[in-house]
């Protein structure tokens, strides 16, 4: 019998994969996901754009020609200069300057940094919360499930920007009534933004994860774990969680774009990041005041930067959704 079986091994045995990073990379570049990425020029384009933003955000302080927060480096003489190619433009400020004489290009690079940071942080918060609640809801079922899902539905019936504004107001109000909490304005603003955007977006994750969990929960590998006597929490963590993360990744990408927009909206409305450390949204709001006095660049360039970033991330998200869904292929 032994040698018969060995013979069967000969038929299907692929070379034994080596574990480790190199092998992971090899598998990734051999995968259908990578292949579908390669064969879609628009996705590659979006990927490159997103990558540029990431590099700018991470290495901003070393790349940006000026430090827009260095008050000593600012001069009112340089305020409201148009882009370099226009009359009165200066080569030092390729995209012109704002009312305080800050280089707009540098401000956009620093602003993208803030926007991406808040976007990422709030997406991670929403994701962790949504995954946890979705898993519990789908796995435990019954009254717990009903409670979580009804809460999600109630929250869904309000626009998320409204929820974000509400949470924002509550937290800021709380800190105002507790002046003994010595928090500096900028940190507080970041914290409040991440919390309000994160809390307003968990529902999507929770619903998706709950759906996948309901499917996975009844699969035989989960039953096998029950038969072995694995603790339900470990089953959720080690068996179900890795198998429900695929769709979450897609939502996270699309939600990243959404979170950046929400942050920009909140900042535009004046409840976001203060102008001393502007995000893209703050820049747009500040520039908005000058739009009709002819200094269009102050608002248009940050606006374009935001639009391009969001579009690129969205395109990536769309592609990822299609690539991970075998039915669409």
């Amino acid at each position: 019998m032994a040698d018969q079986v060995d013979k069967s091994q000969g038929i299907v045995s692929a070379p034994v994969p080596k574990s480790g990073f190199l092998d992971m990379m090899r598998r990734f570049f051999d995968s259908d996901v990578w292949h579908s990425f390669k064969s879609s020029p628009i996705t590659i384009f979006a990927g490159v754009i997103t990558l540029i933003y990431f590099i700018l955000a991470i290495f901003g302080p070393w790349i940006a020609p000026h430090d827009p927060f260095d008050l000593a480096g600012l001069s009112l003489m340089d305020s409201l200069l148009p882009p370099a190619w226009m009359e009165y433009g200066e080569a030092r400020f390729p995209l012109g300057t704002d009312d305080q004489g800050r280089d707009l290009l540098s401000a956009i690079i620093y602003g993208s940094r803030v926007s991406l940071f808040i976007g990422f942080a709030s997406v991670i918060l929403a994701m962790v919360m949504g995954i946890a609640l979705g898993l519990i809801s789908g796995f435990v079922g019954g009254a717990v499930d009903a409670f979580i899902m009804r809460a999600a539905e109630i929250q869904l019936s309000f626009p998320s920007i409204l929820i974000a504004l509400l949470i924002n107001g509550i937290i800021i109000g709380y800190f105002k009534t507790h002046p003994e909490w010595q928090v500096d304005q900028v940190t507080l603003a970041y914290f409040v933004l991440v919390l309000s955007i994160g809390l307003s977006n968990w529902v999507q994750y929770a619903r998706t994860v709950r759906g996948s969990t309901l499917v996975e929960r009844n699969k035989e590998y989960v039953q096998a774990a029950h038969v072995i006597g694995i603790h339900p929490i470990m089953i959720m963590w080690r068996h179900i969680l890795p198998n429900v993360l695929g769709p979450v990744l897609v939502i996270a990408t699309i939600q990243l774009a959404l979170a950046i927009i929400t942050e920009a909206t909140l900042s535009f409305l004046g409840v976001g990041v203060p102008p001393t450390e502007p995000s893209l949204g703050t820049l747009i709001r500040v520039g908005n005041d000058y739009l009709f006095s002819g200094e269009w660049w102050i608002t248009i360039f940050p606006g374009a930067a935001l639009a391009i970033l969001v579009l690129a991330v969205n395109l990536l998200g769309d592609w990822l959704r299609d690539a991970l869904n075998p039915k669409l292929r």
């Binding site: 699969k219 035989e220 590998y221 039953q223 038969v227 198998n243």
Partner: peptide
């Protein structure tokens, strides 16, 4: 006391 399941495609965790 252990169990063997029907569907060989669903009874092993794919990850």
């Amino acid at each position: 006391l252990q169990m063997i399941f029907q569907d060989p495609y669903a009874s092993l965790n794919p990850r």
